[in-house]
Design a protein around this nucleic acid. Structure first.
Lengths: 199, 199, 199, 199
DNA sequence: TATGAATGAGAATTCATTCAT
DNA sequence: GATGAATGAATTCTCATTCAT
């Protein structure tokens, strides 16, 4: 019989890779990188341990792929949201987006955030996180400047901290944390003008 | 040789325990819990591996003690600072205290914060962190209420988030992070009345 | 498409086998049998891992073929050289041949020689090596007898040892080893008569 | 109870190390380095796998120790033998020594020799072997010079080759190889004067 | 109290081999 | 004939924990 075509192989490949990354994401975001073994990942992905090494060089390599894909996912959503709107609305959308992300993608936020504690061990993460943080900060400070807020840089730095701090406390307190209330509170605080226009 | 007295034994015990916890703190806050071995802790503490098990039942037990002692350390400083002052000054002192902690005890903050990612693995940590967070929040909200801030609860939740968020970004960015500037910014923002009164 | 003829199939077969053996020779003589994987061989041969198993039953089977082909290569050259000449010249040619082999086919010598250390693991190699050694020894002893050397058997055993010993030291010392000097030295020692006659 | 004394620990340590090295020597010289697993070594030594790593950093580390101890063993015997005798007798003793070594310590010779094929993989071995070879060669060439042999350097190089070549052929042919006959033959060839004096 | 030797379970990783296409 | 995905056993190595002294 003739061998599978390149496309067939590629389909198989990407499906397996997808499975591995999904399993890895699920387990690592739940239990942490060190507490997740390749065996667990393979079992969760429904494949053999050996196959994992067909697609990834090492456990660290899985982490790299995972983190990069996690980052670029966030990226895409981020840009798409705020590029084409006027500042007042964009600011509102930012809160909207952030709280939505937190509600639906808490695991993703958890994974990325936990990486900050692994910078010593995996230096590439430091780079990624710093870049992420800079973009994040830059975007917010531009929004705030456009809205006419004084000292937008420090305000942005503070707002960025608010976001990660809320994510952090949500992680600790779980559903006891009043996400909805905080969202409303922040919108009222930062988007008053826009709101008033809406009234 | 005369046998050692109870007091002597007790002194030896507590000294060894202290050493173990110090070593554990040092290593775990730097490298993480999973990446720190009992051997490393014993070596850093200058005692034998076996002796560690004389004082602690397991590696997890060390973590429990470590986290509890870390928490109560923070506690003590915290209470002592704000109990006896008037609200306007206390708020200032709070910023003072926080940024000082971050500058001098970053490792402690890092250790406690990282624990949030281990809640699934060590449920006792969830309790501790939630309590901590509640106290933290309660104290700030009282301060803000006393200062006359409207909606002090949500403001407190936000300010608490600002603190942890700044800690988090400081962890990522290191000395590039403008801690001083942020401190000044927050003091100006939250303690204006007091400052103006002072002038 | 017309189906391939038997000859075409046969050509493909033998070409693939040739490639596999070449790759195996190259890698195994450099890195050793155990440190060479089927994947490496397949990659070096430019074919797939699976195809290797179309032509060989197992990794050991490759080694068998490899060693046999290596031995018979040496064989062919060997016989062709000394069969038709007169003894005095043949002895000279022997040295010539040996040092040439060493210089140009060191890998081959290395592969065959290393096999001696695998006799326990692959008994078939013992047979092959012993036969080889016997032929080798027999040929030399005949040459020496024809040249009129007393006790040609032991002299042959010694000379055979000299050859492999030199090969061995050349392997250790690399280009620092004075191959040329040794060649001249041995020729002077063993072929003086012939040389002097030639003058 | 009081802990064991330093001496007791040291005794335990060196006994375990001895066992590991003995087992490793036995297995590696028989089956080769790559074909010998740590599990096998531990089992042969009658200890657990884990303990091996209490005493050696890695499998390679075992090899290093093994090779170094093998080399220095040979060394000691070597020097002791030839330093204090007159050249004619020393030459005889050299043959004596060599054939004895081969008969009683074939495994040691095999281990050391096989290492030559691992130079690429373990560069430290190259150093050791070259030094060994140089000493070996230097000692023989001095002996031959003292005995009055012309061109003692090349003769020494040849004799050194004879030795390793014989070892090599003995490895291949086993007890079929006429070691005794070769010993006598070489003594007759190289120690004639001394022998004749003895007659 | 104190030591460190000893264990064994489990981690990451490799690789010969099989198999569906 | 040809491919490479998939497997599983084996390998090196780590580490929490136990134990004899």
């Amino acid at each position: 019989m003739s061998p599978r075509t390149k496309e067939q192989f590629e389909a198989i490949r990407s499906q397996s890779i997808r499975r591995i990354l999904d399993a890895a994401f699920c387990l690592i975001s739940k239990n942490g990188y060190e507490s997740t073994s390749i065996s667990q990942i393979a079992k969760e992905a429904g494949i053999s341990k050996g196959l994992v090494y067909n697609y990834f060089d090492s456990k660290e390599d899985i982490l790299v792929s995972l983190v990069e894909s996690a980052f670029s996912e966030g990226e895409a959503l981020f840009e798409e949201k705020f590029e084409t709107t006027e500042p007042e609305e964009a600011l509102c959308l930012l809160f909207d987006w952030f709280f939505n992300e937190l509600r639906t993608q808490a695991e993703l936020w958890k994974l990325i955030t936990e990486m900050a504690f692994k910078i010593e061990k995996f230096p590439f993460i430091g780079e990624l996180l710093q870049n992420k943080l800079r973009e994040y900060f830059f975007m917010i400070s531009q929004l705030l400047a456009q809205v006419g807020m004084p000292d937008p840089e420090n305000e942005a730095r503070m707002l960025a901290a608010v976001f990660d701090g809320i994510g952090f406390h949500y992680l600790i307190a779980g559903d006891e944390y009043p996400l909805d209330e905080m969202e409303q509170f922040l919108i009222n605080k930062y988007c008053k003008n826009h709101k008033e226009q809406g009234e």
